[in-house]
Design a protein around this nucleic acid. Structure first.
Lengths: 211, 211
DNA sequence: GACTGATGTAGAACGTGTTACAAGTCTAGA
DNA sequence: TCTAGACTTGTAACACGTTCTACATCAGTC
C-alpha cells in the first residue's frame, strides 16, 4: 500500500538537509519532533504506518518541511535508526561489557540489542526494512549505522569501553558478524526465523570466526 | 517515485497464484512472458523501471492478469530472481566445479555469479532490492532463492555435482557465506563497495570459516 | 522600521502500486 | 451443443510517496 521512493534525489546537497547538530534551536527541535513521530508511528504500525502525511501531522510540521528535513521516507527511517543506534553506542562507552571471553561479550552485546529490538517488532520491521531498501542516496545514514554497530562489537571484543587498535583481521571478523546479525534480523522480521534461531545463528558465526 | 506494497495480501492462497509448473500451456506461457518482460525492463532501468503497467503491456496481458499471477511487484521480482537462480543451479549440477580446495571452488562459483550479476547492474539492483524488501508474504519465493544459493555453495564445497550429506557445521558455514555474499551484493548495488571489495570480503569470510 | 532571502505552511497535483468492476472468452462436462 | 464457472481483458478508482505553488513568517541588514 505504501509507496517508497527509490530515485536518488536532492543530489545537490548532503542527504539530511538538516544534520543532527546544525541549525537553530527551533530546527533541532523540529528534527527531534519528526524523528519522535516516526518512531511512534513505526512502533504502532510498522513500515506502512509511517506515512509522510501522518508523520508531518504528528510532528506538527508541514509536509513540505518534513521533506526539507528528510528527502524521503527511507532517509527518515534510516535516520531514526541511526539515532537509536547512536544512543546505544553512547551507552556502551560508559562501562565494560560483562563476559570472560570475546565470544561471551559479543554475544552479550548482540543478544541484548536483539532482544530490545524484538520487544518492538513493528518498529524493528520498519527500521530494518528501510535500512535494507535504502539506495545510494542514503549512503551517509547507512554508514552511520554501520559504524555504530562495528564500534559496539569491537568494544565487546576487546572488553573495554575504550577502543584500542583493531587489526585488519578483527575488522573483517566484525564485518562478517554484522552481516550475519543483520541477515538474521531480516529473517526474523519476515518471519523466517524465530528468536532462538537468531541467537543461535549469531552464536555459531561468532564461534566459527573466533576459534 | 515507485510504489511498493508491503502489506500481506492474497492471504487465502499460495503466493504465486500460478506456480511455475502448474496450469495450462497457455498459462505457463503467460507466466514466462511476464517474467521475461520483468527481466527486460529491470535490465534496462532497474527497480523503478519495472512498473506494473509496463510489465503487463510488454507481456501482453491485462494488469489484472498480472496481479493474478504475481500478487505484488515484490513477488514478481523475487520470482524472477528465483527463476534465474534456478537456472544456475541446474547448470551447476552438470559438471564438477574447478578448483583444488573448497575455498577455491567456493570462490570460483561465487565470483562467477557475482561477475555475471555485475554485468547487468540495473537488473541486479532491481532483483536484490526486491529480495531485501520482501516481507512475510514472499516467504516461499525467498526460500526458493535461499535453497538455490546454499545448494550451489554446498556443491562447490564438496567439489561434486552430486550432493552428499552436509553436516550441521557445514550448513552453518554455508549460511554465513550466503549472508556475507548477499550483504556484499547490497553494498555493491548501493555503491558502498566496488567489485574488488565484494570479492575480497567474500574471500576473507570463506578463509576464516574454512580454516 | 522596511527590505530580502531563507524557512515554514497549507494544500493541490502527479505518478505508480494496487484494487474493483463489468464484460468478453475459453474449457470441461452434461 | 449448451451451460456454469473460471480466466482474461480493459478501464476506472484509490492510496500514499513525492513534487509544486502561493503565501506567511522570521532573522539579519540597511
Amino acid at each position: 500500500m505504501t509507496s517508497v521512493s527509490t530515485e536518488p534525489r536532492n543530489t545537490d546537497g548532503p542527504s539530511p538537509a538538516t544534520p543532527p547538530t546544525g541549525g537553530s534551536a527551533a530546527q533541532r527541535e523540529r528534527r527531534r519532533r519528526i524523528l519522535d513521530a516516526t518512531i511512534t508511528l513505526a512502533a504502532e504500525g510498522g513500515f506502512d504506518a509511517v506515512q509522510m502525511r501522518a508523520v508531518a501531522e504528528q510532528a506538527e510540521v508541514a509536509l513540505g518541511t518534513l521533506y526539507r528535513y528528510f528527502p524521503s521516507k527511507i532517509h527518515l527511517l534510516v535516520s531514526a535508526l541511526a539515532r537509536e543506534f547512536t544512543k546505544d553506542v553512547d551507552r556502551s562507552a560508559v562501562r565494560a561489557t560483562p563476559g570472560d571471553t570475546a565470544h561471551e561479550r559479543i554475544m552479550y552485546v548482540l543478544n541484548r540489542r536483539t532482544r530490545a529490538l524484538q520487544k518492538q517488532p513493528k518498529l524493528t520491521e520498519a527500521l530494518v526494512r528501510a535500512f535494507m531498501f535504502a539506495d545510494q542516496s542514503v549512503t551517509g545514514e547507512i554508514h552511520e549505522v554501520g559504524t555504530s554497530l562495528t564500534t559496539v562489537i569491537a568494544r565487546a571484543m576487546h572488553g573495554t569501553p575504550t577502543l584500542g587498535e583493531v587489526t585488519e583481521e578483527e575488522a573483517a571478523i566484525i564485518r562478517i558478524i554484522s552481516d550475519v546479525w543483520l541477515s538474521a534480523l531480516i529473517s526474523w522480521v519476515t518471519g523466517r526465523m524465530d528468536e532462538q534461531d537468531v541467537e543461535k545463528s549469531i552464536d555459531v558465526a561468532v564461534r566459527l570466526l573466533l576459534r
